Simulated assay, not measured.
Amino acid sequence: MTPPDVAVTEVADPLAEAAPTMELLLRELDRRWPREAERLHQISRYALLPAGKLLRPLLLMESAEAVGGGGPAVVPAALSVEYLHVGSLVHDDVIDGDTMRRGRPSVAARYGTTDAIVTGDALMLGMFGALTDGAEDTGLLTEDAGLLTEDAGLLTEDAGLLTEDAGGLPPGRVLGAVRVFARAGVDLCRGQAMEGELRGDLGCGLDRYLTMSALKTGALFRAACRGGAILGGGSPAQQHALTSYAEHLGLAFQMHDDLLPYTSDSRTTGKSALSDIAAARPTFPVLLCHAMAGAPARVRLEAALGGALPAADALRTVHELLETTGALTAARDRATAQADRAKSCLESLPRSRATAVLAAVADLSVSRDR
Rank of each mutant, 00 (worst) to 15 (best):
A73F: 03
V86P: 00
H256P: 08
L349I: 01
E136S: 05
R56V: 07
T329P: 05
S367G: 12
R370I: 04
A273Y: 01
T355W: 00
H41A: 14
V286Q: 03
L309R: 12
V361L: 15
P350N: 02
L161I: 14
A293R: 02
G306E: 12
A327P: 01
A116T: 11
L287V: 11
P285W: 07
A135C: 11
A314Y: 05
A73D: 03
T132P: 06
P261V: 10
D257A: 04
P296Y: 10
P4I: 04
V178Q: 03
V67Q: 05
V361R: 05
L249A: 09
R190M: 07
P4V: 01
V318H: 02
E164S: 14
D121F: 11
E302T: 12
D276E: 08
L242S: 03
E150D: 11
D313M: 09
G228M: 00
S272E: 05
M100A: 07
T2C: 04
L249G: 00
L123H: 06
S344C: 09
P171F: 11
C204R: 04
L161T: 15
G227Y: 00
Q254K: 01
G69M: 02
W33R: 05
D333W: 02
T283A: 09
A18L: 14
L154K: 07
L161S: 12
H85L: 08
G68P: 05
T336D: 11
H240P: 00
M100K: 06
R31M: 10
L162R: 15
L141F: 14
K53R: 13
A304V: 13
G70Q: 09
A291S: 14
D30L: 02
R370L: 02
A291W: 02
A327T: 08
A360Q: 10
R173G: 01
T2R: 04
A280E: 07
L188T: 15
L60W: 00
R370N: 00
G270A: 08
V361T: 11
T263C: 13
G71P: 02
G205T: 13
D187A: 13
L89S: 03
T113P: 00
L49E: 12
D121V: 13
R179G: 11
G97T: 06
C289A: 15
E10N: 12
Q192R: 10
E157R: 15
R334C: 09
A303P: 05
A152G: 14
A16Q: 14
G250S: 07
A224Y: 06
V366I: 13
G270W: 10
T336G: 09
A166P: 06
Q42D: 01
E136G: 06
L322K: 11
